[in-house]
Design a protein around this nucleic acid. Sequence first.
DNA 1: AACCCGTGGCA
DNA 2: TTGCCAAGGGT
Length: 370
Amino acid sequence: MNERIETLVKDFPIQAFQTALIDWFQSEKRDLPWRKNRDPYKVWVSEIMLQQTKVDTVIPYFHRFIDKFPTIEALANADEQDLLKVWEGLGYYSRARNLQTAVREVQASYGGKVPMSKEEFGKLKGVGPYTTGAVLSIAYGIPEPAVDGNVMRVLSRIFCLSDDIAKVKTRTFIEGITREIISEEDPSSFNQGLMELGAMICKPGTPACLLCPVREFCQAYAEGKQSDLPIKSKAKKGNTVHLTAAVLLDSDNRIIICKRPENGLLANLWEFPNEVAVKNGPKNLLSSFETELATKHGIQTHVESPLCTIEHVFSHLKWNIQVYVGKVEGTIEETNELKAVAIEEVTDYPMPVSHQKIWKNYLDGRVTGR
DNA sequence: AACCCGTGGCA
DNA sequence: TTGCCAAGGGT
């Protein structure tokens, strides 16, 4: 244990803190679907879904996911497109693909049973330090820290830490603190208690200290600094990318969609043909767009009329999409990356929310006769 | 270490 | 409207 952690923990009433936190968690915890049992697979799925995602958003996805893929075997054998369709709209799609890679590894190397050692489990794709601690403590009762944003905020206030919680080093440091104060008897309730406290009481901004079960242990509260902690450096805001896109119909009124590359942003999801817009006038823009579609997909297109503008904000960039309606000459040659599908079949394909917006706009326009 | 990777809710 | 935030991990 390093010297700074030793100093912080030396006079901290560990036993009393554990009892207050765990008792509060036992009586106040929310009734969440992944808390119905300790099936390591279901705990694992929930923890992946909850990464950077709110509980209320995850709940319906969790139900649909477990309904469709109830076991490790079911997920391991699933088609990736079916998997992405269930994940559609949840974001961070590599989580889903990494999870499938990981359960296949569990099938191949661990007889289909989620491994209990942090070395083995933590090595799996998409499983980092937080998820390792969360799954091992909740499913198996192993006293391993599970330090997420909640825990960093709570412990920054309890111990009055001014470290920047945006830094990886700070998470490692707080894991060290947690290792010293975690309950060996009930690490599951301890870890979940810290997170539940962060979510329900010890919120960002102004926390509800008067309702806090561990207020008497909180140094920030004692010093009136609870609203100034934790320290978190700002993320730089992303640039805007201007795109030109089109809903294209072939001579059979089928819709042209294409598959995104297998790596990077929105990997392997489907979308309407689009290109980065060139910085020229509208006429020039559209003709160069048609040229790019011909070069890239080998399709002859006629972009005809504007449909809508879509603004879509990502965590690290923004899309501004000028959308048009147009036609493709004849029928296209379908490939793995390019398809012409019936109007009713478009939503069978996993699409990012930005392109779902485009499709909704197109269908609304058809209904109103635009 | 810094950047990439989604989305929706909310002050 | 804009920025911030949410049970992070990969590279």
